[in-house]
Computed example of a mutant assay.
Amino acid sequence: MTETNIYDWVGRTATVSATADGERAARLATLLGRDGDRAAPLFPLGHWLHFSEDDVPMSELGTDGHAALGGFMPPVPLPRRMWAGSDLTFHTPILPGQAIERTTTIESITEKTGSTGPLCFVKLRHEITADGTLATTDRHTIVYREANPVPDGSAAKPPRTDSPAPEGWDWVRSVRPNEVMLFRYSALTFNSHRIHYDHPYVTEVEGYPGLVTHGPLTATLLLDAFMSTHPEAAVTKYRFTAKSPLFANEQIHLVGRETEPGVHELQAIAPGGRTAIAATVTTKN
């Protein structure tokens, strides 16, 4: 029997198509707490609403709710998966009604050892076109790790205690994603990862203290907060890295400051002051 080599997946590509949906864009705006305009350009991260990694038949889902590995994605022998970060370049806005296409290439696979044990990083390059013109380049990193042992019984815990808003930033916005927001975001992005909605699974199987707030949801809230405080700025690049998880009903401080003309440092800060997401925005004023 031939042993599977996960590195054989490097260079594989796949292309999917859709139509930019103004109604989905308006629902994202509703989720973010503002009025949605079905005719307006999509939010810069709007392609996430149209292309789901979990858009496969039920029979092709793994036990965690994600699409099972070994198809397009390499059969990494580590069961836990998280969104580690993205590096996005926005070339041109996407308009409702445009024909959009995403071509995904597996750029690299890297195995490492961290404090929790073996890790495997899979880097994907998504190129999204709108009516044939390159609109967004999205380099997405996924990290896989071993399953941590879970004590007998549920590992559920109450949300961590709120912390004061941090100082030293140009602006601060505080949010508290709850179970309803997590459900709506999962539905909007067709994300079936069970850590975001299945409380017994996330606490008793994966050992988290509560439902995990989606990394891309927090990244969306962070970018939206920046855009709300800089309405005239045109975002050209957005890069973020997930540092630690956040959980439903916890207060998140979204903060930002300009570090040089057109470059802004952003963070999503968890209770206790720990950075959950570190990000950089580049603008063309």
Rank of each mutant, 00 (worst) to 15 (best):
Leu223Phe: 06
Thr241His: 04
Ala248Gln: 09
Ser228Asp: 15
Ser154Ile: 09
Phe190Leu: 13
Ser244Lys: 15
Ser154Asp: 06
Leu223Tyr: 04
Arg176Thr: 15
Tyr144Val: 06
Pro231Phe: 14
Asp198Asn: 04
Thr220Tyr: 05
Glu232Ala: 11
Val150Asn: 03
Leu211Met: 14
Tyr208Asp: 03
Asp162Leu: 03
Thr236Ala: 05
Ala219Cys: 06
Ala233Lys: 09
Gly210Asn: 15
Val212Ala: 08
Phe240Tyr: 15
Leu188Lys: 07
Asp162Phe: 08
Asp198Glu: 11
Val172Tyr: 00
Ala187Val: 15
Leu246Cys: 08
His193Pro: 08
Thr229Val: 08
Glu204Trp: 00
Gly168Phe: 05
Asp224His: 12
Pro245Arg: 09
Ala219Lys: 00
Pro151Ile: 13
Thr220Pro: 09
Trp169Pro: 00
Gly153Gln: 07
Ser154Cys: 07
Gly153Val: 03
Ala225Arg: 00
Val202Asn: 06
Ser186Trp: 10
Arg145Lys: 13
Pro231Asn: 13
Tyr197Lys: 02
Pro151Cys: 04
Phe247Gln: 05
Leu188Thr: 14
Leu222Asn: 03
Trp169Arg: 10
Met181Tyr: 05
Phe226Tyr: 13
Asp170Leu: 06
Leu211Asn: 13
Ser186Arg: 02
Pro151Arg: 14
Ser244Pro: 02
Thr229Leu: 12
Met227Asn: 03
Ala187Arg: 01
His199Ser: 09
Glu204Tyr: 00
Val175Asp: 01
Leu246Asp: 00
Pro149His: 07
Thr161Phe: 03
Pro209Trp: 15
Pro231Val: 04
Thr203Val: 14
Ala155Gln: 13
Arg160Phe: 09
Pro166Trp: 01
Met227Lys: 12
Thr229His: 15
Thr229Glu: 15
His199Trp: 11
Lys243Glu: 07
Thr241Phe: 00
Val202Asp: 04
Pro245Ser: 12
Val175Asn: 05
Asn191Asp: 13
Ser163Lys: 07
Phe190Trp: 14
Val172Cys: 11
Thr218Lys: 02
Thr229Asp: 15
Ser174Gly: 14
Phe240His: 06
Leu222Val: 03
Ala165Tyr: 00
Arg194Asn: 12
Ala155Ile: 12
Pro158Asn: 06
Leu246Arg: 02
Arg173Ser: 15
Ala233Pro: 00
Pro231Tyr: 14
Leu246Thr: 15
Leu223Gly: 01
His199Cys: 08
His230Tyr: 10
Pro159Phe: 07
Arg145Cys: 12
Ile195Ala: 05
Lys243Arg: 14
Ala187Pro: 06
Thr189Met: 13
Ala187Thr: 11
Val150Phe: 09
Arg184Gly: 05
Trp169His: 06
Ala234Gly: 03
Thr220Val: 09
Phe190Met: 09
Asn178Ser: 08
Trp169Met: 00
